[in-house]
Structures are given as structure tokens and as C-alpha cells.
Nucleic acid binder design. Structure first.
Length: 512
RNA sequence: GGUCGGUUCGUCUAGGGGUUAGGACACGUCCCUUUCACGGAUGAAACACGGGUUCGAUUCCCGUACCGACUACCA
């Protein structure tokens, strides 16, 4: 009997959603869609001290931007509401108590000072694993060592306590990870993790298992940093008697720094000049900011495609995939095992591919907006013409306006370097004649015609056009390089081209 | 330190007992182009190391090295 596939993305609202988290969400989404199942989002806000305002909205907006919104979430609840663990708080204690009742967990009263002292003592004694476990718990203050009456008295008095899982002394724990295969661990290496904190909140381990069970999660797809605690989770499913419906696990390879070693961090992005977050972020409280891919000019579908290929590939040589195509091609089996170094050059390449595939009309709004920011108003037709001019030569939409604004705005100054090399007598002769030609011309004027007229002009003066071409460009655009000049002439029209040539002629000094 | 995971060009990766080890990004060269790009062609570039198993290992096994994650009343 197969259950409906249900997967979840379970971020902690402690800051902007990291790109690694976005990829985890994407893989969950892809898997759910591929299997015809559901993708849920659960906010894991059990640590009240780390809560950051705005982080949840950031998560929501990030997923919306990429078009991978969850089927069930705090803002779109399904049958398993609520979807914030803080709002599910009342339910966890009973599960912990059930475990205590069954002998799989116990109360512990040790203060943080006592715990620290214990670790120091063990470290000094060169104990290999200085942790609260099946051996050391016998020396601590808990319901396993204290007389029953004292335990009751302490609980009754309202003394702070935690509930710890009682890890079996000697047991082989095994799990079959979808990506890594069988992973086996001896329970002796595990510690008695806290399940319920003294503030009455569950820790990740308890809340996670309880909620995944209650929400009928069938597959847990999460980052590799969770692999070490997966055996504990397996043990908890067993203690609760939920083995039959225990989800399958898939631990994703980590995203690594582009240079050197280690996990990709915010600092790497700052240092190397690229974002590691989907959206711009600003923490109103502490002023912390981070740059986002979206604001840097990455198109959502390009970014999504790039992200999907960070640790996964379809097995053939295709690289450009729409979200629909990704769903179709996706499989957990094809996710790699090893960590992936983050390469921004590839992200740029994807962006260029998607930019070129977009229609001029789709890209025009970017140009209109960028121009408007500088107080320049342009209409849709003009914007589309500029897009056509620039689309094949840029990485980001913002570069379209940057690279073509001189089409709309006549140059007021000229690249002196180019002028010094190219503004010679021949160029001036040709330009003067060309301006005259244009001023007297009334027929249709397109790139072809502009080129023909220019050629005829040069020929009439018995001069070679090639050598003066850059001077012509300089006269009209102010710079020495750019998109096809004749196309620019066609957009400008005879009158404007002539006007600009006249201005250049009057402004620039002829070289020797 | 311990536990767990990982290791194919600089990067992302395909492949898998016998291959000229394939592709993409980036890089070099050439072509196209009266600029710069795009595009096309082409080049350089990899199986971490040592043992085994085998007729044969980059591929399977073991070890070593290196890298990483985890080792909190954080997730």
C-alpha cells in the first residue's frame, strides 16, 4: 500500500533564507510534483531566542519569486494546521511524557553549570566522548539516579527540568538513505539529547519527529548537516511505535565555498561580490543586510535552473530546463553525494541564456524602469528597440539601459582615448558629407539604408570607410564600442544622427 | 579527539571492470564581424594515494591521505 507522497521544507526563521535552504525547498518541491504529492512548509520556531522578525515573510516571498510555493503552509493552511511549531507547542509535552512513561526518556535537573562542569571533568579525564550518555547519566541529577520521591518533589516545586531521550546502551541503528544507501551507527556513540527544554518548548529532534508523523510526511529531504542526528530520529520513531510510517530520508550534499574549503556562508558572498541569498534582506532590528540574486538581476527561472543543477543533473547533456521540465526529469537517485562548490560564473551563464530567450517585449519593462530611475521617460517601442540592440550582449537586464542609454541621450562628451586615435581629417570629411546627405534625405531610413548611404558618401570622397568607422561611432555615441551602429542609426533617424554628427564635428579637435 | 559522510579536468558533472574517460562553465587560439559581443570551430585540462580481487581497475574491496558535517536546553 502506498501513501500519498508528502514532503516538507522546515526552515527556522532566524534570518534570510540561505541559498542552500532554497535548493532544499526546490528539491522537495520537485519531488512532490514529480510524485504527484504535496509540498508543505513548516516553520520551526522552537528557539524563541533566535527568532528574527521578517524572516518568515522572507521565506514566503523567496519561494513565491521562484514559483515553488508550498501546498500547505502557515499562510495557506491545510488539514495539519497549525504550521508553526510555536503554535503547536501544547501538543509536544504529552509525546515527551509518553516516552518517559515507556522508559525511553527521563527528567533531568542538571543546571547548565553542572553540565559544563561534567564536560570539563570528562575532557580532563580524556574521555573520548564528553557527553550526557548512557554512562555519564548515572552520575547526573535525573529521574534515573534520584529517588522517585525526590523527583516528584522537584517536579512539584516547579524546579526547571528538561526531558532527555534514553539512548540504549548497545544497539545498532541503521537507516537507508535514498542518496547514500545504508548508514549504520552504534547507539553508544549517541548522546541523551534533550527533547523538551526547560522553557517548555521541544527541541528540533522531538518537534520534528512528532510533526512529521502528524503531518503524514513520507520523505524527509534535507541538508547533509542532519545526517549525524538521523539515527536519533530513527530511534525516536521506534520508541513512539511509528516505524511503519517512518519517512524515507534523503540527505542532500552541502553547498561549499567557491575558493578554499568549508560551507558556503554569507561572508563568502560579501568577499567575492555575489549574493548567497535569493532576495535582498534587511534586518530592521540590528541593521544586518544581505544582497539577493533577484535584486542583482538574476531572472527567477534562470536562478531556479542554476539551483537545480547544484548537486543534481538529468543524466544527459541538456542544461536548460523550465520548472515543468525539471519536474519531469527530476529524481532523487540522480542527486550527487559530494559537496558542491558554488560557481557564480555558471549562474551568470544561465542568466544570459534565459535573457536571450526572452522576447523584447518581456524585457522592455526593465529598461523603462531603469530609465525612469534616472528621470528618463521612454516608451515601450523604444525600450523594445534597445532590448533588441543589447539582449545578446549582457548578463543582467540592468545592463541593457546602461549599455544603450546613449541611444536616447545624445553624448555631451566623447571618449578622449578613441578621439585621440581616430578623429582624423578623413573621418571629418566623411562625417561632414554624411551629415549633409542625411539632412537632405527624405526616404525610408533603416539599418540597411543607413549603411548604404554611408558607404556611398565615403566612396564619393574616395575614402576608405573602414578606417573611419570608429570615428563615426564616436561621433554619434560618444564611445568606441557598442552594439551595431547602423541599427542605432535606424532607431535615431536621419535628423538626430545628423545633429549628433554636427555636434561632434563642432566639439572635437582634429588630430595631426 | 570521536562519529558519520565524501573524493573524475580550475568548477559543475557523465560514465563505469577492457572508453581516444564525454559534456557544460571558465580559459587559450581561429573563423564570422568595419567595434564590442553573440555564434561557429578548435585547444589545453581530471579518475587523490597505496594495497588487494582480476587476464585486466578510474570503476569492486581494504587501508591511508585530504575535505566536510556533526559533536548545545540552535536548528
Amino acid at each position: 500500500m502506498s501513501r500519498e507522497v508528502r514532503v516538507r521544507f522546515a526552515p527556522s526563521p532566524t534570518g534570510p533564507l540561505h541559498i542552500g535552504g532554497v535548493r532544499t525547498a526546490l528539491y522537495n518541491y520537485l519531488f512532490a510534483r514529480k510524485m504527484g504529492g504535496k509540498f508543505l512548509l513548516r516553520i520551526e520556531d522552537t528557539d524563541q531566542t533566535r527568532f528574527v522578525p521578517g524572516a518568515e515573510d522572507y521565506i514566503k516571498e523567496s519561494l513565491e519569486w521562484l514559483g515553488i510555493s508550498p501546498d500547505e503552509s502557515p499562510w495557506n493552511p491545510g488539514d495539519c494546521a497549525p504550521y508553526r511549531q510555536s503554535e503547536r507547542k501544547p501538543s509536544y509535552m504529552q509525546y515527551a511524557l509518553d516516552l518517559v512513561e515507556a522508559g525511553h526518556a527521563y527528567y533531568a535537573f542538571d543546571t547548565s553549570e553542572e553540565l559544563e562542569a561534567m564536560r570539563e571533568r570528562l575532557t580532563a579525564a580524556r574521555v573520548v566522548q564528553p557527553q550526557y550518555n548512557s554512562i555519564t547519566r548515572t552520575q547526573m541529577k535525573n529521574s534515573l539516579t534520584l529517588p522517585e520521591e525526590e523527583v516528584k518533589a522537584r517536579l512539584a516545586s516547579g524546579e526547571p527540568y528538561v526531558i532527555r531521550v534514553k539512548i540504549p546502551r548497545k544497539e545498532e541503528v541503521r537507516l537507508n538513505d535514498m542518496i547514500r544507501g545504508w548508514v549504520m551507527v552504534q547507539s553508544a556513540t549517541l548522546d541523551d539529547k534533550v527533547l523538551m527544554k526547560s522553557d517548555g518548548m521541544p527541541t528540533y529532534h522531538l518537534a520534528n519527529i512528532v510533526d512529521d508523523h502528524l503531518m503524514n510526511i513520507t520523505h524527509v529531504i534535507r541538508g547533509e548537516e542532519w545526517l549525524p542526528s538521523a539515527p536519533l530520529h530513527v530511534l525516536l520513531y521506534k520508541f513512539f511505535g511509528w516505524e511503519d510510517t517512518m519517512p524515507e530520508f534523503a540527505h542532500l550534499p552541502l553547498l561549499l565555498k567557491p575558493d578554499g574549503n568549508g560551507k558556503l556562508s554569507k561572508r563568502d558572498g560579501d568577499k567575492l561580490g555575489f549574493p548567497v541569498f535569493p532576495l535582498n534582506w534587511e534586518n530592521k532590528v540590528d541593521g544586518d543586510t544581505a544582497a539577493g540574486f533577484r535584486e542583482q538581476g538574476y531572472l527567477s527561472d534562470a536562478f531556479l535552473n542554476f539551483l537545480a543543477f547544484l548537486g543534481w543533473n538529468p543524466g544527459d547533456e541538456r542544461e536548460i530546463f523550465s520548472l515543468e521540465e525539471l519536474i519531469e526529469a527530476f529524481s532523487v537517485e540522480r542527486i550527487g553525494k559530494s559537496g558542491t562548490k558554488f560557481d557564480i560564473a555558471k549562474a551568470k551563464w544561465f542568466n544570459e541564456q534565459y535573457l536571450r530567450a526572452k522576447s523584447n517585449a518581456e524585457l522592455a519593462p526593465y529598461v523603462i524602469a531603469d530609465a525612469a530611475k534616472e528621470g528618463v521617460t521612454i516608451i515601450q517601442d523604444t525600450a523594445e528597440a534597445l532590448v533588441a540592440l543589447m539582449k545578446e550582449r549582457v548578463t543582467f537586464p540592468a545592463e541593457i539601459w546602461q549599455g544603450s542609454r546613449f541611444v536616447v541621450e545624445a553624448p555631451t562628451e566623447f571618449d578622449q582615448d578613441i578621439a585621440g586615435k581616430r578623429w582624423n581629417a578623413d573621418a571629418v570629411t566623411i562625417l561632414t558629407a554624411y551629415a549633409e546627405t542625411l539632412e537632405g534625405y527624405t526616404g525610408d531610413f533603416d539599418a540597411e539604408k543607413a549603411k548604404a548611404l554611408l558607404g556611398e558618401t565615403a566612396e564619393a570622397k574616395e575614402l576608405k570607410l573602414g578606417k573611419s568607422m570608429q570615428a563615426v561611432r564616436l561621433a554619434v555615441t560618444g564611445v568606441g564600442a557598442g552594439p551595431d551602429l547602423m541599427e542605432i542609426f535606424a532607431i535615431l533617424g536621419t535628423e538626430e544622427v545628423a545633429k549628433r554628427i554636427r555636434f561632434a564635428l563642432a566639439t572635437l579637435e582634429v588630430i595631426g
